[in-house]
């Protein structure tokens, strides 16, 4: 009886929701299939697009909590590179475990440092991000000077075969629970909605924002493992070069959060996947691959423009309805 207190979703509307959620990537993939059924009709090709989105997905999840509380931190890339370099270094000494712990522990530390700088200085997250980015990039360059950046191929197993799915599913469960089923997640969303009101409701905004950086760092650690294992290499970047690592995942997150038919955690997956497919479409059309960011940018503007102006777009229809009801 008690279950009836709360509204239950019917199976039909559940199916509708799933279709709505996956509509975008499926449509995009159909474009690929239309260009060449022979090449993209294969299940392997379909799976490949999912695999390709995994690294960006992990980075996206790590940024999602921050973005939820309006923290935009472009230092993610520099932290990933630095944590990756440290992880690779440790892998040479302690093997796979060295890689995992090296990446995760250093990333949590770097995230905490960034959060601390943010909390102490109380400057906007973007500025904090740039400041620490410059430092972390330099540190990465210094570090890589005195060490060999090579990771041996036996330590790349985490991104191979089924391992990547296991890792991603574990990450998904963790992120999903953190975002939807913990006090932390609830309060994060409250702050993101209206910080002033949230504070007056007794939510410790400053502490939670700091924790967001720490949690973000933890997740960046796993994203780093995937990043390194996937490409088989990690190269230090300087001159703000690390920033581009964050761009594609941010687009995935923004797109994901616009998808209202599903939970944001799933949304980020759908967003990242969609953007990955757009990249593949570029190549399939024989366009320059570097046009990808341009296309994704335009795509994002269209989607956001649609989202933000949806009310206006549908206004003529609703006012008509009002008139009818008035009569």
């Amino acid at each position: 009886m008690k279950t009836n207190i709360l509204r239950k979703e019917s199976i039909l509307s559940g199916i509708k929701r799933v279709i709505l959620t996956l509509l975008l990537p499926i449509l995009l993939y159909l474009v690929l299939v239309l260009t060449s059924f022979e090449k993209f009709g294969k299940f392997d090709s379909f799976i490949m697009t999912i695999n390709q989105s995994m690294v960006n997905l992990a980075i996206g999840w790590s940024m999602m909590f921050g973005i939820s509380v309006n923290l935009f931190d472009f230092s993610v890339g520099s932290r990933l590179v630095l944590a990756g370099l440290i992880g690779v270094h440790f892998s040479q000494k302690f093997g796979l475990l060295g890689l995992i712990l090296g990446c995760v522990v250093s990333s949590v530390l770097l995230g905490s440092i960034t959060g601390l700088v943010f909390s102490i200085l109380k400057v906007p997250s973007i500025i904090t991000g740039f400041a620490v980015l410059l430092i972390f990039e330099s540190l990465g360059v210094i570090l890589s000077k005195n060490m060999v950046n090579a990771i041996s191929s036996e330590h790349l197993v985490l991104a191979k075969g089924f391992n990547i799915y296991i890792l991603i599913v574990l990450l998904f469960i963790f992120v999903y629970i953190m975002y939807n089923h913990t006090k932390f997640g609830f309060q994060i969303k409250a702050i993101g909605g209206n910080e002033r009101v949230a504070t007056s409701m007794g939510i410790n905004t400053a502490k939670l924002k700091f924790l967001t950086y720490v949690l973000g760092g933890f997740l960046v650690g796993f994203a780093t493992i995937l990043y390194v294992s996937n490409a088989g290499t990690i190269q230090p970047k300087d001159g703000l070069g690390s920033m581009s690592i964050a761009f594609t995942p941010i687009m995935g997150v923004m797109l994901g959060m616009l998808i209202k038919s599903c939970n944001s955690v799933v949304g980020v997956f759908v967003g990242s996947w969609s953007i990955t497919i757009i990249g593949s479409v570029m190549v399939a059309f024989g366009w320059e691959s570097r046009l990808q960011n341009v296309i994704v940018g335009i795509f994002l503007i269209i989607v956001m423009g649609f989202q933000l102006n949806r009310d206006k777009l549908f206004k003529p229809i609703t006012t008509k309805k009002n008139i009818q009801t008035n009569n």
Binding site: F186, Q187, K189, G192, G193, A198, M201, G202, I203
Partner: peptide
């Protein structure tokens, strides 16, 4: 807070 559910609002904090 508009972006969260009614329940989350009632028990926020």
């Amino acid at each position: 807070i508009e972006t969260i559910t009614v329940g989350a609002n009632i028990f926020a904090g």
